[in-house]
Design a protein around this nucleic acid. Sequence first.
DNA 1: GAGTGGTCTAGACCACTGT
DNA 2: CAGTGGTCTAGACCACTCC
Lengths: 264, 264
Amino acid sequence: MEPQRTPVDQPKSLQVADDLRLQIERGDLAPGDALPTIADLSARWGYSVNVVRDAFELLKAQGLVSGGRGRPAKVRVPLRRIVRSSDRHQEEKDLVLLSEEERRGPGAAETLQLQFTATYEEIRADVALAEAFGIDEGAKLLQRIYETTDPATRQRQSWSVSYLPHDLISANPALLDSANEPWPGGTQHQLHTVGVEVVRVVDEVAATMPTTVDLKLWGMEKGVPLLKVRRISFDETGRVVEISDADYPADRTELRFTIPLAKW
Amino acid sequence: MEPQRTPVDQPKSLQVADDLRLQIERGDLAPGDALPTIADLSARWGYSVNVVRDAFELLKAQGLVSGGRGRPAKVRVPLRRIVRSSDRHQEEKDLVLLSEEERRGPGAAETLQLQFTATYEEIRADVALAEAFGIDEGAKLLQRIYETTDPATRQRQSWSVSYLPHDLISANPALLDSANEPWPGGTQHQLHTVGVEVVRVVDEVAATMPTTVDLKLWGMEKGVPLLKVRRISFDETGRVVEISDADYPADRTELRFTIPLAKW
DNA sequence: GAGTGGTCTAGACCACTGT
DNA sequence: CAGTGGTCTAGACCACTCC
C-alpha cells in the first residue's frame, strides 16, 4: 500500500472556515447565532488559536460572519434592503424608497425617512468629463453632491456626484441654489424648466470592495461590496445632459430596473 | 505641555496597508507594478513580518493587490469588462457581448467568443418559486442552467438558472430540448412560439462576496464581488412567465441598463 | 473580573517562482 | 539555487462586553 495522501491538503484555516460555512449554509447556525469561541474551536481541532482567527477573518471577508471585540462572533443577519428603483428616475426625490410590498408589509410602521444633504459647486470639466459630455475641456459644470443617511442608524445610505453643463441650466438661476433641494420631481423636472427633456437614461452598474476609508465613512462591515452606478442622461437630440456617479452599500441596497420590452 | 497623543492610534497593519493604498491611489504604484517585498517593508517600518503580511491580505481583500506564492505582490490590473446590456434581453444570444465602442476599438481583433453550455431539467416548484410565479407548489417547471466560459482564459464568465412554468411551454416540444440551445432570439422568441409575449422585465441587482467554493469555481481572486441579478419576466396580463438568477464576477462584468423615460 | 476577539512578535517551515 | 509570499505555532498583551 502506498501511504495515503492527505485527501485535499487544504490549509487548516480553510478547513475550519469551510466547516463553519457549511454549518451556516445548512442552517445549523442561524443568522444571529453565536459561533463557537476561538479557544473552543482551537481546542476541538487541535490547531493554534491563530489558525481559527484566520478562519474567522475569512468568514468576515465573505460577509458570513460579523462581530468581534468583546462580543462573540455571530452569523451575520441580513439587513433590510432599500430598493432603488429605476421607475422613479429622480434620486433626489427618493426620500422614501421602499418597494410597494415592503411599504404595505409588516414593519412599515416606521416609515423609513432618510436624511438628505446636497452640496453645489461650480467646477471646470476635466478631460474625462469633457469627453463624456462631448464638450470642451474646461467648460463650466454644476457639480452636485448628494448624500442620504438613515437617521435611526446614522448610517449613510447613498452618496452621489452629478454633473450638469452649466450653460444648459443657467437660464433658471434657481437651479444653481442648493437651498432649493430636494427639488420636486428631481433632475428631470429641473431640466424641464430650462427646456431640456430627458428621454433616455443609461445606468452602468459595477461592484467593488470598499477601502478602509470607505468602511469608516459608511459604517460598513468587512465583506460587504459597494455598488457603483454611473448614470448618463440623454435628451431628444442624443446629447448628454447629466452624468452621475452613485455609490450604495450592497448590504442595504437593492437596485431594481424595470424595462419595457420591444415587441418581437 | 501634555504628552502628545498618538494622532490616530491605528493598528500597525492598517498603517502599512493605508500607506500602500495611498501610493496606489496616487499612482506612485501603477497597475502591474510590484510592491516592495514583505521583508523590505518589515525592515523599513520596524514591524514584524506578520504585520506586513496582514497588510497585504487586507489590500487583497480590497481588490487592490494581486499575486503571491513565489511571485512578488503586484498592484492589480483591471480586467476587460464584458458589457451585459439590457438592450438585448436574450442572454442565450449573448455570445458576443462587447459594447459597440469596444468592438470597434483597438484589440477587437480577437472577437471574444464565449463558450456556452445549457442544461435542462424538469423540476417541481418549491415554496419560494411557487410564490414568485403565483402558481401551486409542486407545479412542474423547466429549469435551465446556462454557463458561459471564456475559452482563452478558461474562466467562467456567467452562470444562471432560469425557470419556466412547464404548462406554458409544453405546446412546443422543441423548447424542452437543450440540444436546441442557443435558441435564436432567446427566451423572448421561445415564449413567442407558444403564444406568450414578454412585455416587461424587472431586474433586481445585488452584490455579495464569493465563498471559498465560488472562488475556485470562477477562478476569481480575493477581493472581487459577485454581481447577482434576478430577472423576472412578465407577459401582457402581468403574469410571471420566467424567473432567472444570474451571477457575474464583478471584475469581468459590467451591467448596463437602458431605460426610455416617460415624458414629464 | 472573566471571557471574548483583535493585534503583535519571533521564529519556523513550506510552496512556488525565477535564474 | 535564492528569494518571494503563504501557513503555522506559542505565547504575550490589549480592547471591549457583559455580568
